[in-house]
Design a protein around this nucleic acid. Structure first.
Lengths: 342, 342
DNA sequence: GTTAGCACTCTAGTTAATAGAGTGCTAACA
DNA sequence: TGTTAGCACTCTATTAACTAGAGTGCTAAC
């Protein structure tokens, strides 16, 4: 659709704008990039590119900047698949190694690394337990009134919670109940453990005389552990580095949104294909980030979607690098999680 | 030291400055606060107050603003102990109630509430396990290569971690070891569990033939769980609301610091008395927050210091309200934690 | 001791002027 | 026909000059 020369000029403009954040004029292009044509010719081409919607002008006598459509074309057609630099890879791997591995630390650390390498805000959603498979439930003693419920998933996720128990139930009772529950639920996905099933188990335990009611309550509470999805955020400070966020009010509105965990979950779109997804400007559903771009990928365990990692920044983003980082980190994280898996 | 009239004027100026963030002139004071004296008189008094170091002038023809010393006097002598409004109390309690109680959620929630009510940044340090008492250690199965170590403290803190086990050790072996360890360590503070003691236990287990080496490694790893102190941060966005942080660079440097968990720990000073501690401007040891003030309190369980809650904001802070909130939340949190305690 | 009056100071905001970057058009050129 | 040089025109950002306003500090009167 675009001839070779237009592509080259568009690429030059976008590359330049990404690194300088300043509108680019025809002279600059002619000087910096040896395309063998004069500024005047470039001017004509730029005018065409603007007509076609790939560029826009902040005002008449300024240079051009890429439009959302320009970025889209850049990402889809102009970007050669970049490889991460040796340096970055080494950096990433060393960071991962230094930290002790508790599973939630892995996510926190991933968010941190992502933001440092890309110099943008990162969002990492942890696997939702509800998508995992039930492995077992266990009760540990705490005191006369309370026990610790430990819920373990197939993927090695562990949740614990302190809950009250009625006086009439002993720890031994609970452990018996846990045993029964485990027999019935092991291997099922948390999602498929519906209340109908719980009713069945309840009937079974009913024969175990009077403790069913309390026990059921307990179980329901225990299974409620995994209701909220966890999201890890990294490098919100990076926002302030970007010239497009020189304005405090802009930062404020964006940071405000990022603090809301629920909104974050919504922003991340679950997707099923393995690739890296780039959303540019208004393509985002949420108006707060309509002048931001997001690069995200979803990681899997055994083909099951478990979570998403993403980088959020201004539309003027180093797409090539960010995409490479996201891809690399995604693989890395998947590997790491598979180690934890049974 | 200051006569009644000077106090009244100083109080008026600081009150006004706290709410407006603008330098105050003598006319304004005369108009807003009915002190029964003319602007000229107030001017003289203000001049005195400046000489004494309680006020300062941004430039000759501007009004006066409080100095750090002025704030200090205000906090120490002028502030009548404020009570929280019914409204705020209701708000706080409703917030606490809505959330499910997992112990780390309590801290996260506390940070959030603190920042919302005070409209400032809040910092909450969680109890360090090392200051708590060992209750028991338990191993739960995960797969052939890994087990989950669960560490439970006296205060109801629970830590878990997935660790590798050498092939030659069975889960039963581990449980025996756990039993022995528990016999020896229960009731001791984590801090007092030194390597010398571990050596002793090692010798004991040694008789249990070949698994001591691996088991010790395991235990050491397990006990390392609680090495890092956890800090919860709330409402960093609130910073941007304050006019003193209109400047992006200021925000950047402060937010950058707040992202470093280690620095946060250092900023919070452990203190032994029960009261609320106010640190104003340069009184802070850390230069990054030298134009900030901090209000903090330390919460206890059984007289043991376990953690700190704090509010950080510009020196121009609603000290009265913030102090009241900190005090209230501190008590509230202590109660809550004592519920979790054995 | 308090107050009114007044000259003086400093800032923040407004206006005016200027330099610079960039465009678009026209006409010449290969 | 595509490319290029030249030039007038446009718009912004920066600087400089100016002004209004708020506030002080001093003096003299009450």
């Amino acid at each position: 659709m675009l001839d070779e020369r237009k592509r080259k000029i568009l690429q030059a403009i976008i590359d330049d704008y990404i690194s300088t954040a300043e509108p680019i004029g025809s002279r600059t292009i002619a000087r910096k990039y040896n395309l063998g044509i004069s500024p005047a010719t470039i001017r004509n081409e730029m005018s065409d590119l603007e007509m076609l919607g790939y560029l826009e002008q902040p005002h008449t006598s300024a240079g051009r900047i890429p439009s959302a459509r320009g970025y889209r074309f850049y990402v889809d057609c102009l970007l050669s698949p970049a490889k991460l630099s040796e340096n970055d890879i080494a950096l990433i791997e060393s960071w991962y190694k230094t930290k002790v591995r508790r599973i939630d630390e892995v996510f926190q650390e991933t968010a941190k690394i992502l933001s440092r390498v890309t110099r943008n805000v990162s969002i990492v959603s942890a696997p939702q337990m509800r998508q995992c498979t039930f492995r077992y439930i266990q009760f540990l003693p705490l005191d006369e009134e309370r026990v610790i419920v430990v819920l373990v998933s197939d993927t090695g996720l562990i949740e614990n919670k302190v809950i009250k128990i009625p006086q009439e139930i002993s720890l031994e009772d609970l452990q018996k109940i846990a045993h029964r529950i485990n027999l019935r639920l092991t291997g099922m996905s948390f999602d498929s453990i519906k209340s109908s099933l719980l009713h069945e188990i309840k009937r079974e335990i009913l024969q175990q005389e009077n403790l069913f009611e309390a026990a059921m309550e307990l179980l329901r509470e225990a299974l409620a552990i995994n209701s909220t999805e966890k999201v890890y955020l990294g490098g919100t400070t990076q926002l302030l580095e970007q010239p497009e966020f020189r304005d405090v009010d802009k930062v404020k509105s964006l940071l405000g949104v990022l603090e809301e965990e629920r909104v974050l979950c919504d922003i991340l779109q679950r997707q099923n294909n393995q690739g890296v997804l780039v959303t540019i400007g208004q393509e985002n559903k949420f108006s707060v980030i309509k002048d931001c771009s997001m690069v995200q990928a979803t990681y899997h365990i055994d083909g099951q979607i478990v979570g998403t990692i993403a980088v959020l920044g201004p539309t003027r983003m180093e797409y090539g690098k960010v995409m490479a980082v996201i891809e690399f980190m995604n693989q890395h994280l998947s590997q790491l999680l598979n180690k934890y898996k049974v």
